[in-house]
Design a protein around this nucleic acid. Sequence first.
DNA 1: CGTACTATTGAGCGCTCTCAAAACCAGTGG
DNA 2: CCACTGGTTTTGAGAGCGCTCAATAGTACG
Lengths: 253, 253
Amino acid sequence: MTQDKVISFSSIKIDCKSCNLTTLCLPLGLESAEIGRLEEIIKRSRPLHRGDQLFHAEQGFHSLYVIKTGSVKTFLPEPDGGEQVLGFHLPGEVIGMDGIESERYHCSAKVLETSAVCEVPFDRLEALTHDIPSLQHQLYRLMSKEIGQETDMLALLGSKSAEERLAAFVLGLSERFKRRGFSATDFHLSMSRHDIGSYLGLAVETISRLFSRFQEEGLLKVERKHLQLTNLAGLQAMAKGCGLEPRRQKHGG
Amino acid sequence: MTQDKVISFSSIKIDCKSCNLTTLCLPLGLESAEIGRLEEIIKRSRPLHRGDQLFHAEQGFHSLYVIKTGSVKTFLPEPDGGEQVLGFHLPGEVIGMDGIESERYHCSAKVLETSAVCEVPFDRLEALTHDIPSLQHQLYRLMSKEIGQETDMLALLGSKSAEERLAAFVLGLSERFKRRGFSATDFHLSMSRHDIGSYLGLAVETISRLFSRFQEEGLLKVERKHLQLTNLAGLQAMAKGCGLEPRRQKHGG
DNA sequence: CGTACTATTGAGCGCTCTCAAAACCAGTGG
DNA sequence: CCACTGGTTTTGAGAGCGCTCAATAGTACG
């Protein structure tokens, strides 16, 4: 029960010990009575499995979802049945905030591996943020952070080469795993090469070729879904476009 | 004074008659006393001119800014002095929300033409949203909308060809001018070709060439900064990638 | 052990890039 | 008024990155 409290509390707070997520946010400083109220509105879900869909684009919006364990991808469905991947989400992260404006989800969300996810009905959360100013502030911060992250992604897609994008991608994952207390150099890719390609605006084949090249260059080792980063500094240099030989173009040249 | 009230009210409401912006949002339904309180916190600014900077990336965050007239671009400064353009902002739009999370602006904002901009200190706005639930809801919606728009841009950059991007861009501008009560087919581009290219992830030369080609194809007429859309349906088809001849790639192949 | 899906690798091409230069425009000062 | 200067836009030529197509290998599942 105490354990449950911690989980519920931290699900919103995004500062969740049970999710190994201790540094993302400032403490909320809620009173225990307030924690209880927050707990009340959170629906715990049974385990979800690979391919399960949390919500669909255009579907009526009611709740935010907090990833507790596992991973989730968000994407924009395309008319031809394809998926434009928008992001990969790890424990402690919140999705669904794009649905508030129109009261319909803007994107779809699909579970990448067996995962646990909390549902937080937004109308009740909104009412609670009205009663608890620090929670209100936290929600503003959360949405602001989302905007900033998408902004960074726009810059990546707008001006980086394929190798810069992939290097930045694996380093981003590394950083996020590290914050969660997992290894920063050794982790599992729950998404397919296809999803990575879609996310980075590249073809599947390009992802595969780059992984092979990075491995040849000793930057990392990749075996199917397992990734081991063997030269973080080299990857960082590559992500910044400061590769050994000066290159300065996205593609073409 | 009544006129001023309308402006202040609508600056936050994003439903501003004086900005020709009547359809963007639902009414807030504020009491006149509440309107007064909102008015109090808004700082009106003197006119700004082309090149004036509203805020810089990494600078301490204190306020949101609402464009009243003119236009503003937001961008991420690059180490080499370049600018990765993130968006162009028209009257009624709010910028600076990316600064809430870290209490530093995430991007920079520069005025594109003579403009009027309201400053809204965020701490005071936040306090006010606590007192006025409908205002709180409106701010959530505003941030949610921003997330959705950036999402759409990610999809554009991730999977569209150059011609699809430019067609979508001019149509997006057209739509936004239309909502503001201006002509949807005849308007002024306050940003340079360079800015458009950066925004769309394309080279300046590509923008210029595409404008020329679109003109040859009778889709639009362009003369320096003046744009006239002569075939909206054709542009829409092009933006969707349903051009006359089937094409299905971003670049290459 | 067959079927379907995912990943890898190769061959070839074209979209969009870079480089380069000319045309055009705006502002300044003589 | 015009030459000068700096910036923006246009246009051309050529090249390369990342694409598509295609085929092979590896993996998952029944």
